[in-house]
Protein backbone atom coordinates (compact mmCIF):
# COMPACT_ATOMS: atom_id res chain seq x y z
CA UNK A 1 0.00 0.00 0.00
CA UNK A 2 2.89 2.42 0.44
CA UNK A 3 5.13 3.64 -2.30
CA UNK A 4 8.58 5.04 -2.92
CA UNK A 5 8.79 8.68 -4.00
CA UNK A 6 11.66 9.85 -6.16
CA UNK A 7 12.09 13.52 -6.86
CA UNK A 8 14.41 14.49 -9.70
CA UNK A 9 15.71 18.00 -10.36
CA UNK A 10 12.55 19.71 -9.20
CA UNK A 11 12.17 23.46 -9.61
CA UNK A 12 9.02 25.06 -8.18
CA UNK A 13 7.71 28.44 -9.30
CA UNK A 14 5.08 30.96 -8.26
CA UNK A 15 4.69 32.80 -11.55
CA UNK A 16 8.11 34.28 -12.28
CA UNK A 17 9.40 33.67 -8.76
CA UNK A 18 11.40 30.49 -8.29
CA UNK A 19 10.53 29.27 -4.80
CA UNK A 20 12.45 25.97 -4.67
CA UNK A 21 15.45 25.07 -6.77
CA UNK A 22 16.89 21.81 -7.94
CA UNK A 23 15.67 19.32 -5.35
CA UNK A 24 16.43 15.64 -5.81
CA UNK A 25 15.71 13.08 -3.14
CA UNK A 26 14.24 9.63 -2.61
CA UNK A 27 11.65 8.89 0.06
CA UNK A 28 11.47 5.25 1.09
CA UNK A 29 8.14 3.46 1.56
CA UNK A 30 6.89 2.78 5.10
CA UNK A 31 9.07 5.46 6.58
CA UNK A 32 8.64 8.90 8.04
CA UNK A 33 10.57 11.67 6.35
CA UNK A 34 10.76 15.08 7.99
CA UNK A 35 11.45 18.37 6.23
CA UNK A 36 13.01 21.01 8.46
CA UNK A 37 14.32 24.49 7.79
CA UNK A 38 13.64 28.15 8.51
CA UNK A 39 10.36 29.81 7.54
CA UNK A 40 10.07 30.68 3.87
CA UNK A 41 12.65 28.13 2.76
CA UNK A 42 10.16 26.26 0.59
CA UNK A 43 9.39 23.17 2.70
CA UNK A 44 5.62 23.66 2.48
CA UNK A 45 5.86 24.63 -1.18
CA UNK A 46 7.88 21.51 -1.88
CA UNK A 47 5.59 19.13 0.02
CA UNK A 48 2.60 20.49 -1.90
CA UNK A 49 4.27 19.50 -5.18
CA UNK A 50 4.19 15.86 -4.08
CA UNK A 51 0.41 15.65 -4.61
CA UNK A 52 0.05 18.45 -7.16
CA UNK A 53 -1.62 20.77 -4.66
CA UNK A 54 0.94 23.43 -5.56
CA UNK A 55 -0.76 24.20 -8.85
CA UNK A 56 -4.13 25.16 -7.32
CA UNK A 57 -2.51 28.54 -6.63
CA UNK A 58 -2.93 30.72 -9.74
CA UNK A 59 0.30 31.04 -11.73
CA UNK A 60 2.13 28.30 -9.84
CA UNK A 61 3.94 25.56 -11.76
CA UNK A 62 6.65 22.93 -11.46
CA UNK A 63 9.59 21.77 -13.57
CA UNK A 64 11.15 18.35 -13.11
CA UNK A 65 9.86 14.93 -12.16
CA UNK A 66 8.20 13.37 -9.14
CA UNK A 67 8.06 9.59 -9.51
CA UNK A 68 5.79 7.53 -7.28
CA UNK A 69 6.88 3.92 -7.77
CA UNK A 70 8.32 4.94 -11.12
CA UNK A 71 5.25 6.82 -12.42
CA UNK A 72 5.83 10.50 -13.07
CA UNK A 73 3.16 12.65 -11.38
CA UNK A 74 3.95 15.48 -13.78
CA UNK A 75 3.82 13.39 -16.96
CA UNK A 76 1.60 14.41 -19.83
CA UNK A 77 -2.01 13.29 -19.40
CA UNK A 78 -1.80 12.77 -15.64
CA UNK A 79 -4.99 13.87 -13.86
CA UNK A 80 -4.08 15.77 -10.67
CA UNK A 81 -7.37 14.64 -9.12
CA UNK A 82 -6.29 10.99 -9.37
CA UNK A 83 -2.84 11.84 -8.00
CA UNK A 84 -4.45 13.39 -4.93
CA UNK A 85 -6.49 10.26 -4.29
CA UNK A 86 -3.17 8.39 -4.00
CA UNK A 87 -1.28 11.02 -2.07
CA UNK A 88 -3.33 12.40 0.80
CA UNK A 89 -2.61 15.53 2.76
CA UNK A 90 -3.11 16.94 6.26
CA UNK A 91 -2.84 20.70 6.68
CA UNK A 92 -1.37 23.03 9.23
CA UNK A 93 -4.69 24.18 10.62
CA UNK A 94 -7.37 21.55 11.20
CA UNK A 95 -10.00 22.07 8.50
CA UNK A 96 -12.98 19.75 8.97
CA UNK A 97 -15.92 20.61 6.70
CA UNK A 98 -18.21 22.79 8.83
CA UNK A 99 -21.39 21.62 7.13
CA UNK A 100 -20.76 17.94 7.84
CA UNK A 101 -21.03 15.70 10.87
CA UNK A 102 -18.01 13.84 12.25
CA UNK A 103 -18.99 10.68 10.37
CA UNK A 104 -19.61 12.60 7.14
CA UNK A 105 -16.23 14.30 7.47
CA UNK A 106 -14.58 10.89 7.56
CA UNK A 107 -16.62 9.80 4.56
CA UNK A 108 -15.98 13.09 2.72
CA UNK A 109 -13.56 11.50 0.26
CA UNK A 110 -16.27 9.02 -0.74
CA UNK A 111 -19.35 11.21 -0.54
CA UNK A 112 -17.90 14.30 -2.21
CA UNK A 113 -16.88 12.11 -5.13
CA UNK A 114 -20.49 10.92 -5.55
CA UNK A 115 -19.46 7.31 -5.01
CA UNK A 116 -22.15 5.07 -3.62
CA UNK A 117 -21.43 3.23 -0.43
CA UNK A 118 -23.75 0.96 1.53
CA UNK A 119 -24.71 1.93 5.06
CA UNK A 120 -22.81 -0.94 6.62
CA UNK A 121 -19.69 -0.35 4.52
CA UNK A 122 -19.86 3.34 5.46
CA UNK A 123 -20.12 2.50 9.16
CA UNK A 124 -17.17 0.11 8.87
CA UNK A 125 -15.09 2.69 7.05
CA UNK A 126 -15.87 5.37 9.62
CA UNK A 127 -14.94 3.08 12.49
CA UNK A 128 -11.78 1.81 10.81
CA UNK A 129 -10.56 5.28 9.87
CA UNK A 130 -11.32 6.79 13.25
CA UNK A 131 -9.63 3.83 14.95
CA UNK A 132 -6.68 4.42 12.65
CA UNK A 133 -6.56 8.04 13.73
CA UNK A 134 -6.90 7.13 17.45
CA UNK A 135 -10.10 9.11 17.67
CA UNK A 136 -12.77 6.39 17.74
CA UNK A 137 -13.07 6.07 21.51
CA UNK A 138 -13.47 9.80 21.95
CA UNK A 139 -16.19 10.36 19.34
CA UNK A 140 -18.02 7.06 18.87
CA UNK A 141 -21.05 8.31 20.82
CA UNK A 142 -21.39 11.57 18.90
CA UNK A 143 -20.69 10.74 15.28
CA UNK A 144 -23.58 12.90 14.10
CA UNK A 145 -22.34 16.04 15.85
CA UNK A 146 -20.64 18.66 13.64
CA UNK A 147 -16.91 18.20 13.14
CA UNK A 148 -16.27 21.70 14.43
CA UNK A 149 -17.60 20.71 17.87
CA UNK A 150 -14.32 18.86 18.56
CA UNK A 151 -11.21 20.34 20.15
CA UNK A 152 -8.32 21.44 17.93
CA UNK A 153 -6.32 18.25 18.49
CA UNK A 154 -9.38 16.08 17.87
CA UNK A 155 -10.18 18.05 14.72
CA UNK A 156 -6.67 17.44 13.43
CA UNK A 157 -7.02 13.70 14.08
CA UNK A 158 -10.40 13.87 12.35
CA UNK A 159 -8.61 15.36 9.34
CA UNK A 160 -6.10 12.51 9.47
CA UNK A 161 -8.97 9.99 9.65
CA UNK A 162 -10.51 11.74 6.62
CA UNK A 163 -7.19 11.47 4.76
CA UNK A 164 -6.69 7.75 5.50
CA UNK A 165 -10.32 6.91 4.69
CA UNK A 166 -9.58 7.29 0.97
CA UNK A 167 -6.73 4.77 1.41
CA UNK A 168 -3.88 6.74 -0.10
CA UNK A 169 -0.38 5.40 -0.70
CA UNK A 170 1.33 8.39 0.83
CA UNK A 171 0.29 10.89 3.50
CA UNK A 172 1.76 14.38 3.45
CA UNK A 173 1.56 16.43 6.66
CA UNK A 174 2.26 20.14 6.52
CA UNK A 175 3.09 21.21 10.08
CA UNK A 176 0.24 19.12 11.48
CA UNK A 177 1.00 19.99 15.12
CA UNK A 178 1.88 23.68 14.92
CA UNK A 179 -1.60 24.75 16.06
CA UNK A 180 -1.86 22.12 18.80
CA UNK A 181 -0.92 21.82 22.48
CA UNK A 182 1.75 19.34 23.66
CA UNK A 183 -0.76 16.63 24.65
CA UNK A 184 -2.50 16.69 21.28
CA UNK A 185 0.92 16.83 19.60
CA UNK A 186 1.91 13.68 21.43
CA UNK A 187 -1.29 11.98 20.29
CA UNK A 188 -0.52 12.90 16.67
CA UNK A 189 3.09 11.76 16.97
CA UNK A 190 2.00 8.38 18.36
CA UNK A 191 -0.39 8.15 15.47
CA UNK A 192 2.36 8.90 12.93
CA UNK A 193 4.39 6.08 14.48
CA UNK A 194 1.47 3.69 13.89
CA UNK A 195 0.61 4.96 10.42
CA UNK A 196 4.21 4.36 9.34
CA UNK A 197 3.50 0.63 9.23
CA UNK A 198 1.12 1.10 6.29
CA UNK A 199 1.92 4.41 4.68
CA UNK A 200 4.77 6.50 3.40
CA UNK A 201 4.67 9.64 5.50
CA UNK A 202 6.22 13.01 4.78
CA UNK A 203 6.00 15.66 7.46
CA UNK A 204 7.00 19.32 7.50
CA UNK A 205 7.83 20.60 10.96
CA UNK A 206 9.40 23.58 12.68
CA UNK A 207 9.89 21.54 15.81
CA UNK A 208 13.27 19.83 15.70
CA UNK A 209 12.51 17.62 18.68
CA UNK A 210 9.48 16.42 16.78
CA UNK A 211 11.56 15.70 13.68
CA UNK A 212 14.08 13.75 15.73
CA UNK A 213 11.31 11.87 17.59
CA UNK A 214 9.14 10.76 14.69
CA UNK A 215 11.22 10.64 11.53
CA UNK A 216 13.55 8.09 9.99
CA UNK A 217 15.12 10.48 7.54
CA UNK A 218 15.36 14.24 7.62
CA UNK A 219 15.83 16.79 4.86
CA UNK A 220 17.16 20.24 5.70
CA UNK A 221 16.13 23.14 3.46
CA UNK A 222 17.26 26.71 3.58
CA UNK A 223 17.45 29.90 1.52
CA UNK A 224 20.53 31.97 0.80
CA UNK A 225 18.61 35.21 1.26
CA UNK A 226 15.29 36.99 0.73
CA UNK A 227 14.01 36.54 -2.82
CA UNK A 228 16.32 33.60 -3.45
CA UNK A 229 14.92 30.12 -4.07
CA UNK A 230 14.97 27.53 -1.30
CA UNK A 231 17.37 24.64 -1.73
CA UNK A 232 17.83 21.21 -0.23
CA UNK A 233 21.04 21.38 1.81
CA UNK A 234 21.27 17.94 3.29
CA UNK A 235 19.20 14.76 3.31
CA UNK A 236 20.19 11.84 5.48
CA UNK A 237 19.12 9.56 8.32
CA UNK A 238 17.63 11.57 11.15
CA UNK A 239 20.26 10.36 13.58
CA UNK A 240 23.02 11.58 11.28
CA UNK A 241 21.37 14.95 10.67
CA UNK A 242 20.95 15.62 14.37
CA UNK A 243 24.27 14.22 15.62
CA UNK A 244 26.82 14.39 12.86
CA UNK A 245 25.63 16.41 9.85
CA UNK A 246 28.06 16.79 7.01
CA UNK A 247 27.16 20.39 6.17
CA UNK A 248 27.98 23.25 8.51
CA UNK A 249 24.63 25.05 7.87
CA UNK A 250 22.69 22.00 9.00
CA UNK A 251 24.70 21.71 12.17
CA UNK A 252 24.17 25.40 12.92
CA UNK A 253 20.43 25.07 12.36
CA UNK A 254 19.81 21.92 14.40
CA UNK A 255 22.01 23.13 17.23
CA UNK A 256 20.29 26.53 17.32
CA UNK A 257 23.27 28.56 16.11
CA UNK A 258 21.55 29.46 12.86
CA UNK A 259 21.51 33.10 11.82
Amino acid sequence: MSKRIEVRDLNVYYGKFKAVEDVSLTIEPRSVTAFIGPSGCGKSTFIRTLNRMHEVIPGAYVEGEVLVDGDNLYGAGIDPVLVRRQVGMVFQRPNPFPTMSIADNVLAGVKLNNRRISKSDADDLVEKSLQGANLWNEVKDRLDRPGSSLSGGQQQRLCIARAIAVEPEVILMDEPCSALDPISTLAIEDLIEELKRDYTIVIVTHNMQQASRVSDKTAFFTIAGTGMPGTLIEYDDTSVIFSNPSVKATEDYVSGKFG
Binding site: N51, M53, V56, V81, L82, V83, R84, R85, Q86, G88, M89, F91, R93, N95, P96, F97, P98, A108, G109, L112, N113, C159, R162, A163, V166
Partner: peptide, 14 residues
Protein backbone atom coordinates in the same frame (compact mmCIF):
# COMPACT_ATOMS: atom_id res chain seq x y z
CA UNK B 1 -12.13 29.73 3.66
CA UNK B 2 -9.69 28.48 1.04
CA UNK B 3 -8.63 25.75 3.47
CA UNK B 4 -11.93 23.98 2.87
CA UNK B 5 -11.37 23.94 -0.89
CA UNK B 6 -7.84 22.65 -0.38
CA UNK B 7 -9.10 20.00 2.03
CA UNK B 8 -11.46 18.76 -0.66
CA UNK B 9 -8.80 18.87 -3.40
CA UNK B 10 -6.42 16.90 -1.18
CA UNK B 11 -9.04 14.16 -0.93
CA UNK B 12 -9.02 13.85 -4.71
CA UNK B 13 -12.32 15.67 -5.20
CA UNK B 14 -12.61 17.39 -8.61
Amino acid sequence: PNELREAAYALGVP
